[in-house]
Design a protein around this nucleic acid. Sequence first.
DNA 1: CGTGCGATATTCT
DNA 2: GAATATCGCACGC
Length: 230
Amino acid sequence: MTELDRGAVPARRAGAQESLPWEDVLSRPAVEAAPLVLGTVLTVRTPDGGAGGVPGEVAVRLTEVEAYSGETDPGSHAYRGLTARTAPMFEHGGRLYVYFTYGMHWCANLVCGTAGSASALLLRAGEVVSGVDVARARRPAARADRDLARGPARLAQALGLTGADSGLELAVGGRAELTPGERVDPALVRTGPRVGVAGAGGDGAVFPWRFWIDGEPTVSVYRPAVPRRR
DNA sequence: CGTGCGATATTCT
DNA sequence: GAATATCGCACGC
């Protein structure tokens, strides 16, 4: 296992962000792409309404992501091989993988790596930088603006993403688009264990595969994985 | 502010 | 049949 596999990403790597187009960044493994994706802006245009039926355009500046590494990662949906659901994860980076969980929530990933590698970044949180009105209409439960995309299911809902968007390729001017944001100080990039993933805390190996921008009010609250009680 | 718990349906075993 | 990459509300401090 390499240093990158352990999540020990050199801070310097995050510095080159603004000079790298997303095509290059997202063709790398998720653990490597994660610090570079922080601070970029994901724009989703849903004239048909998308989730919740509210049409419009919302842009989110990504402040927190988690890396999932396919066949070597027990926490990854792709761990047990290719299925109809996880098919987009096995394709080349630069598209979305959206899944349904807990009976009611959609969560969105940015697929990373090359075809066959099953690597992705779960989009855990972001700051809504445009389309705040649309996001608020989709998320009436949100108290403050900072809660609009604070948490993976909230972020997907604010952007109007559902399973219908899984596999969607990012494209300039398309339904989904990723653009560089303001430069993120590499010293502010933090790493820690993933949220809500069995094996990510306490028992056995813990990998710092969660990445976030320190000091951001939109970063979601950390919760260790808790086995469901019955 | 923090902890606890129910809702809910797809996916894979 | 069991588990789930979660959220929001209720309640107690």
